[in-house]
Every structure is written in C-alpha cells, then in structure tokens.
C-alpha cells in the first residue's frame, strides 16, 4: 500500500484518460445518450402536447404513454436479462453475467416503480381508486418486492460468491412470478384491462399508437444507456472490492490485530 509520488500519480491519470477514463462514459454511450435525450424530448412532445386526449379518460390517458413502456421494459426485458444472467452465472460462475443480471435488475426495479406510480395515478381518475388487489396489480406488486429483495440480497454482507449464488437463485425464482403477471388478466377476473399491445389487433388510434410505440422505443434506449453505465459501475465496484481494497483492508486489519 505504498502511495505513489504525486507526480507519478498525475502521469498515470493522464495516461488513464486516454485508455480508460475516470468516468463510466464512452463513445458509444454518448451516442446512445444523445439518442435517448432526443427520443425523450419527442416522447414528451407527443405524449403531452401533440396527441389528442382520449375520448373518455381525457388527459389522464397520457400517463399510459409512460406506464405501458416502463412495464414492458422492466418486466419483459430487464428481468429477462436478470434471468439469463442468473442461469449463466450458476452454470459458469461468470462475473460478467452476475454483474449484468444485477445491473438490469436495478434499472428494472426503477422502471417497475415508475410503472406502479403512473398506474396508480391513472387508476384514481379512471377506476376510482389508486389501488385495488386485482390479480395483475397484486402480481406486479409481488414482482416489485421480489426484485427489490433480489437487490437487497446482492447488498448483503457475506461471502461474495455465496451472495451472488443466492441472488441468482432469487433472480430465477422471481421470474416465475412474471408469468403470473403476464397472464393474470386472462386467468382471473379483475379491474385491469387486457394487453394494451395485442399483436393481432391493437385497439388504438393512429397518432396515439405512434406515441405509444415511440414510448416503447424511448424506454428501451434509456434502459440500454442506464444498464451499460450501471454495469460499468458494478464492474468498478467488483474491482474495488475483489482485487484492491477488500484484500488490502483485511491485511491491514490483520496487521493491526497482531500488534
């Protein structure tokens, strides 16, 4: 743990700036980031200004341009990545897939939270209640708790390998509940309407459908940008824990105890 001389330090960081910068950005994420911002601004324009109000829900319908895309991204994309990452981690102990599973789950929980909040705000003026223990609402709430639990398990203080393995098991088990979320509107009666995007026939008018699809694309791009950055942060955390600080810390603490 010899600290390098200041001049050497400065030289090293100048060198690092060329190869690995002191942040989690890169050329590709900057392109993706600009694209995400452009899409976000156009989504806001379409969702809040250009589209007409819905015939019966009026303006509260605009919440669905956020609600449906966030739900699709979190439930179908983010947690699917977590599932795949968890399975591969359990089979191959790949750090990459473990970290990617965690990164996708974290952004997925964020999007699922947005799904729940926008859904509740839409439900009040439409149904008459913010919340009802309807099959789809309940199974979605269960998903939120399960994946929040997955994130909490990843932060538990224990042996990193055991922790990753337990998280992976939870990442797989939690996905089973998503099947219930998906089919809840068909299996049971409830308040929630059916699939908004049915491949066979979508019951939505032109510009509204366009805005909804724009929302889905936008949220996917935002998600991709967030997950890449989150993965890089997770990678840095892993490096800081595994290779560097944790080992050094244990050594120094052991030194201290031997005095």
């Amino acid at each position: 743990m010899n600290d390098p001389a200041p001049s050497q330090d400065a030289f090293e960081s100048a060198l690092a700036a060329r190869t690995a910068p002191l942040h989690t950005g890169s050329k590709s994420t900057r392109v993706l980031g600009v694209l995400a911002l452009v899409l976000l601004v156009s989504l806001l324009a379409f969702a809040l200004v250009i589209t007409p109000p819905e015939v019966s829900q009026r303006d509260s319908f605009r919440l669905l341009y956020l609600h449906v895309p966030s739900a699709i991204v979190s439930l179908y994309v983010a947690f699917a990545i977590t599932l795949v990452g968890s399975i591969i981690y359990l089979r191959k102990q790949s750090v990459f897939w473990d970290l990617l599973a965690g990164a996708a789950a974290e952004v997925g929980v964020l999007f699922l939270g947005i799904t729940l909040v926008t859904g509740m705000l839409w439900g009040k003026p439409t149904w008459g209640v913010y919340w009802q223990w309807d099959p789809r609402l309940t199974s979605t709430a269960v998903s939120f708790v399960l994946y929040a639990g997955y994130l909490a398990v990843r932060k538990l203080d224990m042996d990193p390998v055991v922790r990753s393995r337990r998280a992976a098991v939870l990442g797989i088990v939690s996905f089973l509940n998503l099947i219930i979320v998906r089919y809840s509107v068909q299996w049971w009666r409830g308040l929630h309407q059916g699939q908004t995007f049915d491949v066979a026939d979508t019951q939505m008018d032109g510009v509204m459908l366009f805005t909804a699809l724009l929302g889905v694309i936008t949220m996917h791009v935002v998600f991709a940008w967030l997950v890449i950055h989150r993965f890089r942060v997770a990678w840095l955390e892993h490096q800081a824990d595994e290779a560097g600080l944790d080992v050094a810390l244990r050594e120094r603490r052991a030194e201290g105890a031997n005095v």
């Binding site: 589209t51 007409p52 009026r58 008459g128 699939q195 049915d198 019951q203 939505m204």
Partner: peptide
C-alpha cells in the same frame, strides 16, 4: 358500496 369503472383496452382519440 364501492363502484369502480372498468376500462377496456380500446383507446379512442377524441378527434
């Protein structure tokens, strides 16, 4: 004692 409006999955623009 509780009356909730169930919305269908068809959305119509108020043109």
């Amino acid at each position: 004692s509780q009356l909730l409006v169930k919305h269908s999955e068809s959305y119509v623009a108020d043109n």
